[in-house]
Simulated assay, not measured.
Amino acid sequence: MIEVQGVTRTYGGFTAVDDVTFRCEPGRVTGFLGPNGAGKSTTMRIMVGLTAATKGTVTIDGLPFHQIPNPGRHVGVLLDASAQHGGRSGREVLTLGARMMGLPDSRVDEMLTLVSLTPSEAKRKIRNYSLGMKQRLGIAHALLGDPKVLILDEPANGLDPAGIRWMRGLLKSYADRGGTVLLSSHLLHEVEQVADEMILIGRGRIVAQGDRETLLRQAGPSQALVTSLDNPALAAALEADGVASEVAGTGLRVHASTETVGRAALAAGIVLTDLRSGGAGLEDLFLELTADTQREGNPA
């Protein structure tokens, strides 16, 4: 478990992180979302003792990071995939990590296989790695000590679509085994597919948090976009149930949930060819709550 309580970090007159409080539970993937410069990376650096908090505390399973014995066996960290010595090979990096943690060298081979780095790639110098290969090596290093907690900053950067899907499955299975995962990103769609809970941060402050359903309720009332083989008949059936709708393109925009629309169509015997949510989504909520931090539409 990760517990962040009232964490603030200031640099002179600038506040990078402002009274941030949240908790990451075991068995869950927590997405930490915000625009570039919102304070995500600073918060994560504070968690692992690389940056001191001006005030507030962070504990991992009840202890500050610097008090955790052999921390790599308890907390896996990936904050910057490019922060490895470019003159070392991937295998050398993992071997040094394994020996520092008191692990057998066989663990290195297990991790290289897990992240799909081939024997020839493992022998190459990191300066010759692509960003995606560096990310895979960084994930291997974070998982090396079989930790109970993972703290990952933008781990999908540089991965191709197959790599991103692989990473999602890896993190989900890790949480399903009882692990705690904190995953930061500025890409909402990427995190939405794997996170059980999401924390939105803007200008160093938490602006929203909760699971997907909770955040969608905050985004606004339910709406649906629907197309059927008989749109006028569907509109009439919805009106009879007290549900308003209007024409939208080749279909209808309905001021109700997709479930309500589906039930009305079934009762009226109308075939639907398309039915989807048409209300404000998580992306709309994200952009609305962090609007004053976006470069687009905000002159310097």
Results as ranks from 00 to 15, higher is better:
Glu192Trp: 03
Asp241Trp: 11
Gly242His: 04
Ala219Phe: 11
Ser184Glu: 06
Ala224Pro: 07
Gly220Arg: 13
Pro161Ser: 02
Val191His: 01
Glu192Met: 07
Glu259Lys: 14
Leu188Met: 07
Ser228Pro: 01
Tyr174Thr: 12
Thr258Pro: 09
Leu229Met: 15
Leu272His: 08
Trp166Cys: 00
Lys172Tyr: 05
Ala208Ile: 07
Ala236Trp: 08
Leu171Glu: 04
Leu252Ser: 06
Ala233Pro: 07
Gly281Lys: 05
Ser173Asn: 15
Ala237His: 02
Leu225Lys: 06
Ala267Met: 14
Leu170Gly: 14
Pro161Met: 05
Ala280Thr: 11
Ala162His: 13
Arg276Leu: 12
Glu283Asn: 11
Gly169Gln: 14
Leu234Glu: 03
Leu183Ile: 13
Leu252Asp: 03
Ser184Cys: 10
Asp241Ala: 12
Ala224Asp: 04
Ala268Trp: 07
Asp176Leu: 09
His255Tyr: 13
Ala268Val: 06
Leu225Ala: 06
His255Thr: 09
Val254Gln: 03
Leu171Thr: 08
Ala195Gly: 06
Thr293Leu: 10
Leu187Tyr: 13
Asp176Tyr: 00
Arg263Asn: 14
Phe286Leu: 05
Leu182Gln: 06
Leu170Trp: 15
Val271Pro: 10
Val226His: 03
Asp230Glu: 13
Ala280Met: 12
Leu289Ala: 05
Pro221Thr: 09
Glu190Val: 02
Ala235Phe: 06
Asp284Pro: 00
Leu215Tyr: 04
Glu259Asp: 15
Ala195Leu: 08
Ala268Ile: 00
Leu275Met: 12
Val194Gln: 03
Gln193Ser: 15
Leu200Thr: 02
Leu171Gly: 09
Pro221Glu: 05
Leu188Phe: 05
Thr273His: 10
Ala208Met: 06
Ala240Arg: 11
Gly169Val: 12
Arg168Cys: 05
Val194Pro: 02
His186Ala: 03
Ser184Trp: 04
Ala280Gly: 11
Arg263Asp: 15
Leu285Pro: 03
Ala175Asn: 04
Leu216Glu: 01
Asp176Cys: 05
Asp230Cys: 12
Ala235His: 01
Arg168Ala: 02
Gly163Gln: 02
Thr273Val: 14
Val191Gln: 02
Gly242Phe: 08
Asp211Pro: 00
Ala240Leu: 08
Thr180Val: 01
Leu289Pro: 00
Leu182Glu: 03
Ala240Lys: 10
Gly178Arg: 08
Glu213Cys: 10
Glu246Met: 14
Gly163Asn: 04
